[in-house]
């Protein structure tokens, strides 16, 4: 719970309390180390929970080669904030209804958490959340991105997602007509 370290400067202290540590150390693709509460990691990430349970956590830093340091920092930040701000009883007691937990709107702090992210950081985070099996963080980030799409034209959506239009003019016209099946009233 008291973990608020962020960057990996705790190289020496780590080895001391190996046996009863309540944190895990994660290593980003670019070699930076982050500590996160073991409880929060296990609760929020199915992948980390599996690694912790399976003993494949490396105390010198579990390699997460798919995640860059900026995204991993956000992941850790999210876990810590989550651990501090959510009354855990609420989550635990609802776990009876297996797999049917309703999606809740992002909480105020979660909204702020993703709102402050840059465009690239948001997309990096959604991938990290996906990779780590962090359902709640995935919900929050996907929700944010979907909000960025609402009411936008295909051109604007391409801009948001940095996608190249690979339709020819004719193809685009055709698909537009197809989608307009309900609009040919006159």
């Amino acid at each position: 719970m008291e973990v608020d370290k962020g960057k990996g400067e705790a190289e020496e202290t780590r080895k001391v309390a190996e046996a009863d540590r309540d944190t895990v150390t994660l290593k980003s693709s670019d070699g930076k180390l982050f500590e996160v509460s073991k409880e929060a990691a296990a609760r929020l990430s199915t992948v980390l929970a599996g690694m912790i349970a399976g003993g494949s956590i490396d105390d010198n830093g579990t390699d997460l080669k798919q995640i860059g340091s900026e995204a991993l920092e956000n992941v850790v930040d999210y876990c810590n904030k989550h651990a501090n701000s959510i009354p855990s009883a609420a989550l635990i007691s609802s776990s009876i209804s297996f797999n049917t937990a309703p999606f809740k709107e992002p909480e105020e702090w979660e909204r702020k958490f993703v709102d402050r992210l840059s465009h690239d950081a948001l997309f990096d985070l959604v991938e990290a959340a996906n990779f780590l099996g962090m359902e709640r963080l995935l919900d929050v980030t996907c929700h944010k991105i979907s909000e960025m799409m609402k009411g936008k034209s295909p051109d604007q959506i391409r801009e948001v997602f940095n996608i190249k239009n690979d339709y020819t003019k004719e193809e685009l016209e055709e698909i537009r007509q197809e989608l307009a099946w309900a609009f040919y009233d006159d």
Binding site: V126, E127, C142, H143, G151, K152, I157, I163, K164, D166
Partner: peptide, 23 residues
């Protein structure tokens, strides 16, 4: 899967338009 996760959260109209984004 991730893109589908995002698209699952947009309204039907936006989804329809999204077909025009790319093949």
């Amino acid at each position: 899967d991730l893109l589908a996760d995002i698209l699952a959260r947009v309204p039907a109209r936006s989804l329809c338009r999204s077909k025009c984004v790319a093949k």
